[in-house]
């Protein structure tokens, strides 16, 4: 009985975090905020649900499998978020108008795809798009 309660609690919290990630991605006003909401709420939720499953089955093989997936998620999720974040900024996705500070502005060099700690000359900076270029026309 205690085990069932533990399993249900872990899974309820995990599912709540997942629902939160979904609502976050729907309600947040710009790409980077959406990423903030999903990258971890999703990961932590998945981790908790996996932990719940491991407790439920209570077998050594499943504990190791759950541990392997959790470690894998913890390593890959931030890497994926970092790659998309960088690509999105580079691609010109604008920040929300309510953003109060953007230290990244003017630090990406467009010609070499590098990020510099100093200011980059204006003609080589990455510019934010004004509107969606989601499906660019074929040239």
């Amino acid at each position: 009985m205690a085990q069932t309660i533990l399993v249900l609690t872990l899974m309820l919290i995990g599912a709540f975090l997942m629902a939160l990630a979904g609502l976050g991605i729907l309600r947040m006003p710009d790409t980077f905020l959406r990423m903030s909401a999903t990258a971890k709420a999703g990961t932590l939720g998945a981790g908790l649900i996996l932990l719940g499953a491991a407790v439920y089955f209570n077998e050594f093989a499943i504990y190791t499998r759950a541990a392997a997936i959790i470690v894998f998620l913890l390593i890959t999720a931030p890497v994926a978020a970092h790659m998309i974040g960088r690509a999105a900024y580079f691609d010109g996705v604008p920040l929300w108008k309510g953003t109060i500070q953007d230290d990244l502005h003017g630090h990406y060099r467009r010609s070499t795809h590098t990020l510099e700690s100093g200011e980059v000359p204006a003609q080589d900076q990455v510019e934010a798009l004004s509107e969606s270029d989601d499906f660019p026309e074929e040239e």
Binding site: M18, A21, G22, L23, I25, T31, R34, G42, D134
Partner: peptide, 29 residues
């Protein structure tokens, strides 16, 4: 609920990275 919300974001976009994030979240969910 999370899946539906993520799916709406996948359809609405507006930018490609938004859709990629939504797709990522959908598979985690």
């Amino acid at each position: 609920l999370g899946l539906i919300a993520a799916f709406i974001r996948l359809v609405r976009g507006p930018y490609l990275p938004d859709r990629v994030i939504a797709l990522d979240l959908i598979s985690v969910l």
